[in-house]
Design a binder for these strands. Structure first.
Lengths: 187, 187
DNA sequence: AATTTCATGTAATTCGTTACATGATTCC
DNA sequence: GGAATCATGTAACGAATTACATGAAATT
């Protein structure tokens, strides 16, 4: 998961660890805060795998920094992680992270991911419905009811995303205008 | 967290590990699935702490089972975990687990827990609002918007719970009728 | 008799956190 | 010159997962 996020950010532009942590919390907001104790070892692992490589600055300037760039291999790993991510579709955080880098996926693949996620949420909904009828106290009941509400809303949201994706897929695809992307703030 | 849940279930009735796992998924539904590799060591730890103790059946019958009962010490530990739980109020799962055992808390304490949770969600909301205005692509924007929606709904739900708690606190408290509790299915 | 379900556990591995350690650079 | 912040890393620890290992009782 962390590796996916790191690769995704590096795809946009090369960065060093400290910067990655900032970008990470900017992109994922309150959903996910990473610590350096997780980040630096992850970078190390990725470098060992050959998914990222160090960039050496021509002019040694300012602070010490280890800037990393995504390699070819890293690109492949990224796409693989992004489209499947181990099929753990019940993982809420995992889905959010993947969505944050969705623009890098092929539209057809996107729809697949969204539909699998939707299926997982339907399962959850059924499970919650069961628990609701089971004997339980008022708090647990409220928990399940609220859980059902939330899940239903998540599903509706997904439906919207899927619909948007389908429209996008059908439309003759000139100049893909999904987002302003990362051209701002040059390294 | 696991320990809290185990203690909470054992408070209702003594059980063995296998049974605990079932009760756990019945109580928390799809929110939390525990594995034996987590459960058995947890029971071991709790026994070592003296929070639970083994119950020896008078008549050795049927399968081999290690049935555990909550001790005095376990009761205290449970209440402590339940009311504070490390003040990690951003932990969604943690809050759900605590709510599942809310009936064991004193009403005044309940309100405190709910209000701290609400405060944490307001923080999250503010954070999400920031991320929304920040430069980001359509998917991330959608993620943040949906996150705000969900968080706002969680807050409303909490408000309801708090209101209900306040009403309950005010009312002259005869025969507390919160739930049918655990008298069913005698061991 | 064979299979399923009940039941308990351990070992290897993964993945993360907190706390610590270190030092350079920039800002005041 | 001193404080803040930038920047990188390691070590100890914690908590969970998966896979493995084992075996008894119940079901078919």
């Amino acid at each position: 998961m962390l590796e996916l996020a790191v690769l995704g950010l590096l795809k946009e532009r090369s960065m060093h660890g400290y910067q990655l942590k900032k970008s990470l919390s900017e992109t994922l907001g309150p959903f996910w805060q990473v610590s350096y104790g997780a980040l630096y070892p992850a970078l190390k692992r990725l470098r060992a795998q050959g998914a990222v490589e160090e960039v050496f600055p021509k002019t040694k300037v300012g602070r010490r920094r280890n800037v990393y760039r995504l390699t070819e291999k890293g690109e492949r790993l990224f796409t693989e992680l992004l489209s499947s991510a181990g099929e753990r579709e019940q993982d809420d955080m995992g889905f959010r992270v993947r969505l944050a880098f969705f623009r890098y996926l092929k539209p057809e693949t996107r729809i697949g991911v969204l539909e699998r996620r939707r299926a997982a949420l339907y399962e959850r909904l059924a499970e919650l419905k069961q628990r609701l009828t089971a004997r339980s106290d008022g708090y647990t009941q409220s928990l399940m009811r609220h859980g059902m509400d939330s899940t239903q809303r998540d599903i509706s949201w997904l439906e919207d995303l899927i619909q948007a994706e389908r429209r996008e897929a059908k439309r003759p695809r000139r100049a893909r205008r999904t987002s302003p992307a990362g051209t701002k703030e040059g390294a």
